[in-house]
Each structure stands twice: as structure tokens, then as C-alpha cells.
Amino acid sequence: MRISLEWDSFFALLGQATLETLYMVGLAGGLTLLIGLPLGVLLFVSRRNGLYPLPWIHAVLGTLVNIGRSLPFVVLLIALIPFTRLVVGTTLGSTAAVVPIALGAFPFFARIVENALDEVEKGRTEAVIAMGGTHWHVIAKVLLPEALPAIVAGITLTLVMLIGFSSMAGVIGGGGLGDLAIRYGYQRFNQQVMVGTIVVLIVLVQGVQMLGDRVVRSLAHRR
């Protein structure tokens, strides 16, 4: 049985779900950046030929990151239900969904940061060290600034992925556009809601991608 909504109710539900999605993506994106950036730097500098060679730490962190990247997000959502309840006291709602979303995204972003730093010319770091610069100077003054366009491109890619993760969080009642599509679109056979959520998701992804590309071009031009 197909159920339709009045336009006022439809736009109210769609607007609320969009705000919830933006909240999840924004908060999870901040946590992903906060955890993934230093982790990516640590993965890079702890290599055998890195600034701080710590092969065993690199091996352990690399293994954990690979495990985090290998798990399908739906499986991760379900597996982290006890941890999510421990952290926020509930497994329902947008705030609860941020926990698995961030934990699923930061290993991916850490690898992006590591690869971005790996693309920086070795001669630049060697020159700073030869002039008496410390390893911290190399990281803060050479590696991160030179890799910034690639890192911003990685942030853009990660945010697009987070939008998809936030939609999948609707499977466990995480709120947002995914939850709206499941409860009002799929379960109630409402094509109006399904089309609306798809359109909004496409607009969000296109907006993030266009903004990210513009920032990357601006940074590359300044270099």
C-alpha cells in the first residue's frame, strides 16, 4: 500500500533529516580529522626509513588501520553497538551514529594522509635537516604544507564517504536521510520520500565535491 505525504509534512521531514545528516557528517568529520591526521603522520614518520624509525609501532598501527578499513561499514555498525551504548548511553539517534561513523572513517583518512606525505619530495626534507632543522620543523614546515592540497582532496573524499556512512546508519535508527528513506520511504512504500532523499544526497555530495575541488585548486595555485 503506497502512502503519500502532504507537501508541508514532506518538506518538514526532509529538512529535519538533512540537518541530522549534516550534524552527523560534521561531527564525525571533525573526529576523523582529529584522529586520522596525527595517525597518518605517525604512520609516515615511523617507517624504517622515516624521521622516527619505529618499525614495530608502524607494523602494529598499520595492521589496526588495515583491519578497520577491511570491515564493511554495516558490519561495523552492528559490532560497535555495545561500545556505542557505553560511550553515549544509547544506540539510537544521530549522536550515537557518530561513534561508528567516525571509527569507520579515520583509518581510511589516516592512509590518505600517509600517502599524501609520501608524495612530498625527499630533497626538501633533507635540505631542512641539513640546515639544522629539527624533525618537528620538517613535519610542520615542509611535509604538512607541501602535502596540504592532497590532504584537502582526501578530506573531500572522506566527507563524501561520511555522507554515505550516515545514510547507512539509518539501518540501526541513526537518524538522518538514511533513516527517513527506510522508515518513510521503504517501509511505507512512499516513492515521494525515496526520491526526495536521493535528490538531497546527490546535492550534498556534489556540493562537498565542488567545494573541495575549488579549495584544492586554490592551494595548488598558491604553491
Results as ranks from 00 to 15, higher is better:
Y52V: 14
Y52S: 11
L54P: 05
L54Y: 14
P55K: 10
P55A: 12
H58A: 14
A59M: 15
L61M: 14
T63D: 05
L64F: 09
L64I: 13
V65W: 00
V65S: 02
G68T: 00
G68P: 00
R69E: 09
L71P: 03
P72W: 13
P72K: 11
V75S: 08
L76D: 07
P82M: 08
F83C: 15
R85W: 04
L86I: 10
V87T: 07
G89F: 00
T90N: 08
T91D: 06
L92F: 07
L92W: 12
L92R: 11
L92C: 08
G93R: 02
S94M: 09
T95K: 08
T95F: 13
A96W: 03
A97I: 06
A97D: 07
V98R: 00
V98C: 01
V98W: 00
V99T: 07
V99R: 01
I101M: 07
I101A: 05
A102D: 03
A102T: 04
L103H: 00
G104H: 01
F106N: 01
F106D: 00
P107M: 08
P107H: 04
F109C: 07
F109T: 01
A110G: 11
R111M: 15
R111K: 13
I112C: 03
I112S: 02
V113F: 14
V113A: 07
E114S: 05
E114H: 12
E114G: 14
N115S: 14
A116M: 14
L117M: 12
D118C: 14
D118G: 11
E121R: 10
E121V: 13
G123F: 04
E126Y: 10
E126L: 04
E126K: 14
A127I: 10
V128T: 11
I129K: 06
A130M: 12
M131W: 15
G132I: 10
G133S: 12
G133N: 06
T134I: 09
W136P: 12
W136C: 12
W136K: 15
H137I: 05
H137G: 15
A140Q: 15
A140P: 07
K141V: 10
K141S: 10
V142R: 05
V142W: 03
L143K: 03
L143I: 05
L143N: 02
L143T: 05
L144I: 08
P145Q: 14
E146K: 11
